[in-house]
Nucleic acid binder design. Structure first.
Lengths: 333, 333
DNA sequence: TCAATGAGCTAATACGTATTAGTCCGGTGT
DNA sequence: ACACCGGACTAATACGTATTAGCTCATTGA
C-alpha cells in the first residue's frame, strides 16, 4: 500500500512557488480585493495543480465560520428499516434543494435513541452552519439553547413552542381542513364526524381547528388505540351521519382503522358514507401535504438564516386539495 | 429576536475560573494524563455548566484531525424521488452501524449530477474522516487521488479497479451463484440458460463466473433492451431447457422481463420451467444479497481504516440462499 | 528632490481546541 | 544546604485557512 502521504497544504504551495501562505490563500480563495500580479497568480495555480491541492474543508470552516454544511436532525432513523416511509418525500425535497444550493448534509445519528444520545446529537448539530429539525417533539431545553445562541435552525412542521421563536416551514392544515369541510357542506352534508388521533401535536390541533371553523357542528371522535369499534360506525348511521373526516398522519393509522371499521360494517364509500382524509395518501379524497415542497422550502429558509440571520420567519404552505372518489353527495341528500 | 450571542468557548471558562485555556481543555476533554486538583476540576466543570459550554466540533476536528464524521457518496440521490429504492437497505445498515459506532454521516449532494459537480463533490469528501462510496462506476482519476493520499475510503460492492487498491465490502456472487446452479444440477437439470443484463459490471461478471464454474454448459443469454422476446422462451423449450437463471439487480429488470416472457408464453414455474434469480427480491428462489449487512460491514471497515490505517482489506460476504417456490425437479426428470 | 500614490505582496492574527514541554513550588531525603 | 521529585498547572504551539493592516518599491507629480 502507498504510504499515507500528507495532503498538500497552502504552505507547501507557498514554499514551492516562493510566496507566502497568505498569497496562496488569496489566489486560491479567489479573493479579488487583494491585488496579485498575473504571473504570480499563474505560478501559484500551477503549483497547486501539480500538487493536487484540495482545500481542507474543516480549516476553511474554522476560518470562515461557514462550511456549506446543513444538519439534518430527524428524531428517528433517516433511512428507517421499514421500507414504507411516509417522510421520505420530505427528505427527498431536502436533498434536492440542498444540492441546488451547493450544500452538503450532515445526518446526525442516534437521534432516535435514548434521551442522552439525543441530546448529545443535538449538541453536535453545531458542527453544521445550521440545522433542519424534523419530528413531532421539541426537546425544549437543548433546542432553546440553540435558538438563544442564534444558531440557525428550521423545523419542518409548525412549531408554536418557545414563545413562537422557532423558525419553521409547515403546512396550512387549518385552511386545507376547512376547505374539505366546506366542500362537504356544499354537497349537502350536515351530520359529519371527525376522527382524530389520540395524541396532541400542533398538526392535529390545526386540523381540528379548521374542521370546526368551517363546520362547527362536526362531532369529534378521538381514537383510543389503533382500532375503531364497528359499533361506533353503526352508531353514526343511526345518528344520520353522511360524511366522515379522518386525520391523516405519517403512519396512516386513523385512516386504516376507519376503513377497516367501514368494511367490517359492510359500508361502501361514497355511496353509504363520504370519506375524506386530512393529509392522506395520494389520490384519496381530502388534501395532500406538500411534503417534497416543505423539504425544499425548509432548506431555502435555513440557508437564508445562515447567510443573513434574519428575524425568525415562519412559513405555512398551501395543501393542494384532492377530489378523489370517496366523497359524493349525501345518501338521502 | 434575541441578539445573536457568541457561543462560550474554553477561553471564557478559563477567565471566569481563573485558570488557563489549556486547563479547561484538559478537564473538559477528559484528559487523564495531565493531573488536575479535584477542586480546580470541579470549578471548571461548574463554570462550563453555567455558561452552557458546548465544544466547537470544527475546532475539535482541526486539532484532533478526527471528527467522527463519515462521508457517504452515492453517485445518485440518497433519497431518490422514486419510492421503491432497492439500495435503501444498504443505507439503512450504514446509518444503523454508524449510530452504533458514534459516527455521523455527511451526505454529499450533487453526486448524481454532471461530471464537474461529481468531481467537486468527490473533493469535498475529505471533509469527513473517511468516505463510503456506493455505485456501479469508479471515476478512476479522482478516486485514485484519494487512495494515493491515503484517504480512508470503502466501496460497497467488489471493486477490482486501480490494481485492486480499493478497499471494499462486496457480496460473494461467485459462490452464491455456483450454489444455485449446483442445486439445479442436483435436482436433475441439465439444459440451463442464464439471462444477464447487457452492461458490464463486476457484480454481473461474478455471477456469470459462478454460473459457469458450477455448470459450464449453461447457455448465456445477454438481454438487449428491457424486453425478452417470447420467441426466445419458446426456443428454450424446443431445446429441452428445464431451468432458467436470471441476474438480479437493483432495478430487477431482467427478472421482470423474463417473468413477463414466461407469462406471455403461458409457462408456469416450477412446473414447466424452474426459475432462479441471482440476488433477487426476498422470497424468490435463488439467493439474497445481504444489503443491510453490507452497509454495516462497510461502516465498520471504514472506521477501522480511519483509526488504524491498515492495509487495504477487501471483504466478500456470503449471500444466503433462498429455496423459494419457483425451483423444482425438471419436467421430464 | 521629496512627498504622494498605488501596485504587489507579507506579517500577524483570528478561528477554537488539543497536546507537549516545560515551569513553579513545596516537600523529602541526605 | 542542596539535589531531587512529584503534583499542579501553564506557555507555546499545532491544526490549515482567511483576513486585515501594513510594508516595500517603483513611479508619478510638482
Amino acid at each position: 500500500m502507498t504510504t499515507r502521504r500528507r495532503m498538500p497544504r497552502q504552505a507547501d504551495i507557498a514554499r514551492l512557488a516562493g510566496v507566502s501562505q497568505a498569497a496562496v490563500s488569496v489566489v486560491l480563495g479567489g479573493n479579488r480585493t487583494v491585488r496579485m500580479a498575473e504571473s504570480t497568480r499563474r505560478r501559484i495555480l500551477e503549483v497547486a495543480e501539480e500538487l493536487g491541492y484540495v482545500p481542507h474543508p474543516v480549516a476553511t470552516r474554522l476560518a470562515r465560520s461557514r462550511s456549506n454544511l446543513l444538519g439534518l436532525y430527524t428524531f428517528r432513523a433517516a433511512f428507517p428499516t421499514d421500507e414504507a416511509d411516509a417522510y421520505h418525500p420530505i427528505l427527498s425535497g431536502v436533498e434536492e434543494e440542498a444540492a441546488a444550493l451547493g450544500q452538503d448534509l450532515i445526518l446526525f445519528t442516534g437521534t432516535g435513541g435514548p434521551q442522552a444520545a439525543q441530546e448529545a446529537a443535538i449538541r453536535r448539530t453545531r458542527m453544521a452552519d445550521g440545522c433542519l429539525f424534523f419530528g413531532r417533539h421539541v426537546p425544549e431545553d437543548p433546542v432553546s439553547r440553540l435558538v438563544d445562541a442564534g444558531f440557525p435552525l428550521v423545523y419542518i412542521g409548525r412549531r408554536p413552542e418557545l414563545g413562537g421563536r422557532i423558525p419553521f416551514v409547515g403546512a396550512d392544515y387549518v385552511s386545507a381542513s376547512a376547505q374539505v369541510l366546506q366542500r362537504l357542506l356544499g354537497l349537502g352534508h350536515r351530520e359529519i364526524r371527525y376522527v382524530r388521533e389520540p395524541d396532541v401535536a400542533p398538526s392535529s390541533e390545526d386540523r381540528q381547528l379548521g374542521v370546526l371553523r368551517a363546520a362547527p357542528r362536526t362531532g369529534i371522535v378521538r381514537l383510543e388505540g389503533a382500532q375503531l369499534p364497528v359499533a361506533t360506525v353503526r352508531g353514526w348511521l343511526a345518528e344520520g351521519v353522511t360524511a366522515v373526516v379522518v386525520e391523516g398522519t405519517d403512519t396512516g393509522t386513523a385512516y386504516r382503522s376507519v376503513r377497516a371499521a367501514l368494511d367490517a360494517a359492510g359500508l361502501s364509500t361514497p355511496d353509504d358514507l363520504s370519506l375524506a382524509v386530512l393529509g392522506g395518501p395520494p389520490g384519496v379524497s381530502g388534501f395532500e401535504v406538500p411534503m417534497r415542497e416543505m423539504g425544499r422550502r425548509a432548506v431555502r429558509l435555513l440557508v437564508d438564516l445562515v447567510t443573513a440571520a434574519k428575524s425568525t420567519p415562519q412559513q405555512l404552505l398551501r395543501c393542494p386539495s384532492v377530489a378523489g372518489s370517496q366523497v359524493g353527495p349525501p345518501r338521502s341528500g
